[in-house]
Amino acid sequence: MRVLSFSEKGCIRKNNEDSFLVLSDEGLFAVADGMGGHRAGEVASSAALHELETWVPRLAELEDQALEKSLTEAFIQANQVVYESSTTVPENAGMGTTLTVLLIRKDKVVIAHVGDSRAYLWRNETLTPLTMDHSLVGELMRLGQITLDEAKRHPQRNVLMRAVGADPTIEVDCRSIGLQTKDVFLLCTDGFSNMISDQELSEEFLEPSPWEERLEKLRQLTLERGAPDNFTALCCIME
């Protein structure tokens, strides 16, 4: 397996509130997009990933539903830590973070997710979203009340319905899928997915060039389009 990644503050933001985690030996990968006041988003995303990392030894011998349950518990623990900090440290008030996690275990992959950072699977030249945006516009689209184009222009397109640390309790989406040779998994924050459409991802992934070149072209395209937000992408390439 190869892992490629980039994380940048973009063209407008003064600091990068995205964080990502690569633990190749444990098969665990994650991205987090923090939100909050002055640098509080940065605190939230890094704190969530730190809690996730401390939980990793508990996942080592687990399988199937026990693995999903324990990974969900890791999210609950991260939520408690971020929420407590946001409610007790004045400069962290109102902070929270998205968190999208990929755990690769033998012939199985577990995806756990809160927020609007995304996970995709590239298999047999087909791109499949593995997560659902926990955002206001995402919910309106699922209800058929707005179109994709309307969602991109919606004045509340950045409003999250779920985030780690936003509330004392949290609901986590968690699912497992089988792993196949030559699968490619992409984790990304909305600073990337808002700039690059699923169609453009598919077209670039179909290119015969090395994966390093494909990801670099997508990084450059994000910057060329103004990159108004921090953006992060993490790609796990099964070989």
Rank of each mutant, 00 (worst) to 15 (best):
Glu216Val: 09
Trp55Ser: 15
Ala30Ile: 03
Gly115Tyr: 05
Asp133Lys: 07
Ala74Gly: 14
Phe6Asn: 11
Gly191Leu: 07
Met95Glu: 15
Glu8Gln: 15
Ile237Lys: 09
Val172Asp: 06
Val81Asn: 12
Asp229Trp: 00
Ile111Asp: 03
Leu67Asn: 08
Phe29Asp: 05
Thr97Asp: 08
Gln80Trp: 04
Arg153Trp: 05
Arg162Asp: 10
Leu130Trp: 00
Thr147Ile: 04
Thr72Asn: 09
Asn194Arg: 14
Val89Pro: 04
Ser176Ala: 10
Leu121Pro: 05
Val110Asn: 02
Ser197His: 08
Phe205Cys: 05
Thr72Asp: 08
Leu148Val: 15
Asn124Gln: 07
Asn158His: 14
Ser24Tyr: 00
Glu203Ala: 13
Val159Asn: 05
Pro90Gln: 12
Gly138Cys: 11
Ser45His: 02
Val109Phe: 02
Phe192His: 03
Asn194His: 13
Ser46Cys: 03
Gln180Ala: 08
Leu121Thr: 08
Glu91Gly: 13
Gly226Val: 09
His134Thr: 10
Phe29Tyr: 12
Arg105Glu: 07
Val114Ile: 11
Phe231Gly: 14
Asp18Leu: 00
Asp25Gly: 14
Leu215Phe: 07
Val184Phe: 01
Leu102Gly: 08
Thr100Gln: 01
Ser197Gly: 08
Asn15Thr: 11
Ser85Pro: 00
Leu223Ile: 15
Val137Glu: 08
Gly36Lys: 07
Phe20Cys: 07
Glu139Lys: 12
Leu71Val: 11
Glu125Lys: 04
Met238Gln: 09
Thr100Gly: 02
Val81Leu: 14
Cys11Tyr: 03
Arg214Gln: 08
Arg219Ile: 11
Asp33Lys: 02
Thr131Ser: 08
Phe6Thr: 15
Gln199Ser: 15
Pro168Cys: 12
Met238Phe: 09
Gln199Phe: 09
Thr88Pro: 05
Leu103Ala: 06
Thr72Cys: 14
Leu186Ser: 09
Asp229Phe: 01
Leu143Gln: 15
Lys108Gly: 05
Ala48Cys: 01
Gln65Pro: 09
Gly226Thr: 13
Asp33Trp: 01
Val89Arg: 08
His134Ala: 12
Phe29Ser: 05
Cys236Lys: 02
Glu84Met: 10
Asp167Arg: 13
Leu4Arg: 07
Gln156Tyr: 12
Glu73Leu: 13
Tyr120Ile: 06
Arg153Cys: 11
Thr126Lys: 10
Ile237Arg: 10
